[in-house]
């Protein structure tokens, strides 16, 4: 590669890297700034780094409640989500039945509809089933909404498993359930990892459903609680920044931990052409 091309390439990359990271960086340094200082100094790092904003955010922002709720909600919803995606994905990917194609296409069709389009009526239904303001309601709605995509991923994966493997197990008298749990699911473990990552990201960041279903403060998720903070007037920006930093910490940690997995060919098998 010649020199000037290399120079411009780096220039463009650095520019975009800065553009994508700077707003985040700004929020990070602002969260350590004293409220008075932020009025004068918006751009530069704080002259004195303080933790006051975090203290206030945790004490008055009920953040600990929200984190507790996420710890309850997400793992439970995740188990249900994995169960639904793996069972349905296996059926669509590797079993033969008459309504397979129409049902599979319907599942794909359902993936696109916006949460807001459904929320009004979901709220209505949950009200009738006594599911509003309960963890169970959110868990069921999340699973229902996110499972079609997960099912699609799993179906894609399972359909790539050679038939011979399943056939020979069948000849040996293994039941479908046994084939699923002892042969194909162990083969799908890397895919399950991917499923857990996207499931986690979808659920952690979900707003419309939790906004409508979780009315009381004690039940709110982190994302919902943070969104509510945004709606309140008279909250100083450094305080807002501290709330953002606390709420982002977990997704960022997850990203750093799985960085290679997420950004490389990712789910290579399913993304590569």
């Amino acid at each position: 590669m010649d020199k000037s091309l290399k120079f411009y390439t780096y220039l463009v990359l650095i520019l975009f890297a800065l553009a994508s990271i700077y707003p985040l960086f700004h929020v990070f340094i602002t969260s350590f700034k004293q409220i008075d200082e932020y009025i004068e100094n918006r751009v530069f790092p704080p002259s004195r780094w303080v933790l006051d904003n975090f203290k206030v955010a945790i004490e008055q922002g009920h953040l600990l409640y929200y984190f507790r709720n996420n710890v309850i909600l997400i793992p439970t919803a995740m188990l249900l989500y994995l169960f639904v995606c793996v069972t349905a994905g296996f059926a669509f990917g590797r079993l033969r039945f008459r309504l397979r194609l129409p049902l599979f296409l319907t599942t794909l069709f359902l993936m696109i509809f916006p949460q807001m389009l459904l929320s009004l009526q979901i709220f209505n239904i949950c009200n009738k089933l006594y599911l509003t303001d309960t963890y169970l309601g959110v868990i069921l709605v999340w699973t229902a909404y996110f499972a079609p995509f997960g099912t699609y991923i799993m179906a894609t994966f399972f359909s790539s498993i050679p038939y011979e493997i399943i056939e020979s197990a069948r000849v040996d008298g293994a039941s479908t359930w046994r084939i699923l749990t002892q042969i194909t699911t162990p083969m799908a473990l890397p895919m399950l990892g991917f499923l857990i990552i996207i499931g986690f990201q979808s659920m952690w960041n979900e707003l419309p459903f939790s906004l409508l279903l979780l009315q009381s403060m004690e039940k709110r998720t982190v994302t919902l609680g943070v969104a509510m903070v945004q709606g309140q007037y008279g909250i100083a920006d450094p305080l807002r920044a501290a709330v953002i930093v606390l709420a982002s910490s977990i997704p960022i940690l997850v990203f750093l931990f799985f960085q290679k997995y997420i950004t490389t060919g990712t789910f290579t098998g399913s993304l590569k052409g």
Binding site: F97, L103, L110, L118, L120, N124, A147, P148
Partner: peptide, 28 residues
Amino acid sequence: QESRDAYLLITPLLLLTFVFIFFPMVSN
């Protein structure tokens, strides 16, 4: 048998999506 198993395996998905996606859509 395979067909019966398949329907059984997709039941959780169908049940959830019917109640929380399909039905709300039609109610609109």
